[in-house]
Simulated assay, not measured.
Amino acid sequence: MTIRNWIKFAFWAVVIGGLVNAVASLIIRWDFYQPYLANGEIVEFLAAIIWNFVLGATMSVMAQAGFFAYLTLHQVGVNIFRSLTLWNWVQVVLIIIVLVDIVVFRFAPGAETAGDWVIYGILLMVLVGAAIFTAIKKVKMTQKPHVLISTMFFMVVVTSLEWIIALMGRQDNIDVYVALLLFPLLAVNAFQILMLPKYNAQSESDRKKLEKRRKARKEAAKTAEA
């Protein structure tokens, strides 16, 4: 990917993360916003939205780091197992392990009521549902069935590792952030895994155009010398 397209790619990832987190916060943290509107404190209300946008943008940077780490891991995995099929089975096992870890070691210690389990169950379904949707979309876009598992692995395992910051917390309002931070991570990761081929193709097209311009300048220079 060219530097220009990488900057575009990173920029839109940041914007998506910020916007998704800001919108999600209006729903998940409405009790935080409501007093500002009730008291007519519009500036404070907007400042709170901007703060949540920045929080989402920050998570998007983490998601970008995780994405490029995954690309390296994927290539290493294929090289180690020397078979895409075997590597896919390894990824399936890792997906299961991570989901069990989330339920047993992350959700269970913080679940004190049935309501807590309902919330955690919904979040788990959102994580898995988003992964399945993104994986199916990726297969349709690429016409390559084997990318289903690798996309699922990225969306579940890598997103969970990025989500671990909130999952490991135990503050009084940690459930709010557990719910809130999942959405920008999923949105940014889905954008990255789906749109990377587009930006790679654009980079290849830009390089070809640049090469044509260079050849045209060389020919023009030769013609001028003649």
Rank of each mutant, 00 (worst) to 15 (best):
79 N>Y: 07
86 L>V: 10
80 I>L: 07
18 G>T: 08
108 A>W: 15
67 F>C: 09
122 I>G: 00
1 M>S: 02
143 Q>Y: 11
153 F>T: 01
134 T>Y: 03
44 E>I: 10
136 I>E: 13
190 A>E: 06
21 N>Y: 12
190 A>N: 02
60 S>L: 05
104 V>M: 10
141 M>S: 02
71 L>M: 12
111 A>Q: 03
3 I>E: 14
121 G>Y: 07
73 L>N: 09
86 L>S: 00
70 Y>L: 13
98 V>D: 03
59 M>A: 14
96 I>V: 14
132 I>M: 14
81 F>C: 02
124 L>R: 08
198 K>T: 13
9 F>K: 08
42 I>P: 02
122 I>F: 15
214 R>V: 15
199 Y>A: 09
51 W>E: 10
213 R>S: 03
176 V>G: 12
121 G>R: 06
109 P>N: 04
138 K>S: 13
181 L>Q: 13
212 K>N: 07
113 T>E: 14
129 G>C: 12
24 A>S: 13
148 L>C: 09
185 L>S: 09
9 F>I: 02
113 T>P: 02
193 I>F: 09
212 K>M: 13
148 L>K: 14
9 F>G: 00
4 R>I: 15
56 G>R: 10
41 E>H: 11
173 N>M: 11
188 V>Y: 01
57 A>F: 00
95 I>H: 11
50 I>P: 07
142 T>D: 02
205 S>G: 00
11 F>R: 15
160 S>D: 00
203 S>E: 03
210 L>K: 07
183 F>V: 06
66 G>N: 05
158 V>N: 04
163 W>R: 01
49 I>P: 00
178 V>I: 10
33 Y>I: 04
55 L>V: 01
224 A>Q: 06
22 A>W: 09
3 I>R: 05
123 L>A: 05
104 V>H: 15
158 V>M: 13
122 I>C: 11
80 I>C: 05
226 A>K: 11
137 K>A: 12
27 I>C: 05
60 S>P: 06
97 I>L: 14
175 D>Q: 08
19 L>Q: 01
47 A>G: 08
146 H>I: 15
146 H>F: 12
41 E>D: 13
218 K>V: 01
83 S>H: 10
110 G>D: 14
128 V>I: 13
109 P>V: 07
183 F>Q: 02
38 A>W: 00
35 P>V: 08
186 L>G: 07
168 M>K: 12
104 V>K: 11
83 S>P: 03
218 K>F: 06
108 A>H: 14
43 V>I: 14
37 L>V: 03
55 L>D: 13
84 L>M: 15
37 L>D: 00
52 N>D: 10
88 N>R: 10
31 D>K: 12
29 R>T: 09
147 V>L: 04
186 L>H: 08
43 V>E: 09
148 L>N: 04
185 L>K: 04
93 V>Y: 03
210 L>H: 11
101 D>N: 05
68 F>H: 07
165 I>W: 03
181 L>S: 05
107 F>C: 01
226 A>N: 12
96 I>H: 07
53 F>M: 03
38 A>F: 05
149 I>D: 06
203 S>P: 06
48 A>I: 03
45 F>E: 04
176 V>R: 14
58 T>H: 08
79 N>V: 09
